[in-house]
Computed example of a mutant assay.
Amino acid sequence: MPYGDLLSSNQRLHHMAEYRLTKRLRHEAELTARSRGLPLLERAAVYYVLHPRPIKRKRDPGNWAPTAKAYVDGLVDAGLLPDDNSDHLLGPYPEMAPPVTTGGARISLVIVEIATPSA
Score class of each variant (00 low, 15 high):
residue 49 V to G: 05
residue 23 K to E: 15
residue 45 A to I: 01
residue 54 P to C: 08
residue 11 Q to L: 05
residue 81 L to C: 04
residue 105 A to E: 10
residue 82 P to A: 05
residue 10 N to R: 06
residue 56 K to I: 15
residue 63 N to P: 00
residue 61 P to W: 07
residue 45 A to V: 03
residue 1 M to K: 04
residue 88 H to P: 00
residue 67 T to D: 14
residue 9 S to H: 10
residue 15 H to T: 13
residue 117 P to H: 01
residue 48 Y to L: 10
residue 22 T to R: 14
residue 48 Y to S: 13
residue 92 P to Y: 06
residue 56 K to W: 09
residue 44 A to Q: 07
residue 47 Y to N: 14
residue 54 P to L: 07
residue 84 D to V: 03
residue 76 V to R: 00
residue 7 L to T: 09
residue 32 T to Q: 08
residue 10 N to P: 00
residue 32 T to G: 01
residue 60 D to G: 01
residue 13 L to G: 04
residue 14 H to R: 13
residue 112 V to M: 15
residue 54 P to E: 10
residue 95 E to N: 03
residue 4 G to N: 06
residue 101 T to D: 07
residue 100 V to R: 09
residue 52 P to D: 13
residue 46 V to S: 00
residue 1 M to R: 06
residue 64 W to P: 01
residue 37 G to P: 04
residue 75 L to S: 05
residue 52 P to W: 08
residue 77 D to Y: 00
residue 30 E to V: 00
residue 103 G to H: 02
residue 60 D to K: 08
residue 62 G to E: 13
residue 18 E to V: 08
residue 72 V to D: 03
residue 96 M to F: 07
residue 98 P to I: 14
residue 20 R to Y: 06
residue 83 D to N: 12
residue 111 I to K: 03
residue 21 L to S: 10
residue 59 R to P: 00
residue 2 P to N: 13
residue 100 V to S: 09
residue 23 K to W: 04
residue 49 V to K: 12
residue 71 Y to G: 04
residue 51 H to L: 10
residue 13 L to H: 00
residue 109 L to V: 12
residue 12 R to M: 14
residue 54 P to W: 00
residue 27 H to A: 13
residue 14 H to K: 14
residue 111 I to Y: 00
residue 21 L to R: 06
residue 19 Y to N: 11
residue 41 L to N: 09
residue 46 V to Y: 01
residue 24 R to V: 11
residue 102 T to H: 01
residue 46 V to W: 04
